[in-house]
Amino acid sequence: MTPAQKKALKALAKSRTPAELRGLFALIRKESDTSLLKALKDAPKPKAAAGDPLVKEITKTLAPILAPAAEKADLLVEHMGSLHKNVPAFEPKGIADAVKKLRARFKDSEIRAAAASLIAKLKKDFSTRETVS
């Protein structure tokens, strides 16, 4: 056995008990090279969980606001307060957080409508469009 081979073997044995190693050697003797190499390949990453469609939709609706996500979410919560009674006061960390907490009190359709009306309001109050008299 060459020094390089010994080094590779030691790396394999690292932090394994003799019993575990015996089991591993037996496995290597039993399986083919192809199946061993296939098993060493990384398992494919699970696909990212599909996001909440309402969060995606609200994010897209609020895109014209020039602000970090937390500020946009705060505006949405504040706007909900102007439209409905008994909106819980909280400072959301982001749009997902705002949607999650607003859902406890409102339907998806109400949150969707609030986001749209917020943009309509901002368009009226904060449009940067200059006019010439």
């Binding site: 014209p64 020039l66 602000a67 500020e71 505006l75 943009i119 368009k123 904060f126 940067t128």
Partner: peptide, 19 residues
């Protein structure tokens, strides 16, 4: 180059430090 299709409710957001 502040985008004209955006609404800056918080005026500081139009500055380069935020944008």
């Amino acid at each position: 180059a502040t985008p004209s299709d955006k609404y800056a409710v918080n005026p500081i957001n139009v500055t380069a430090m935020m944008r």
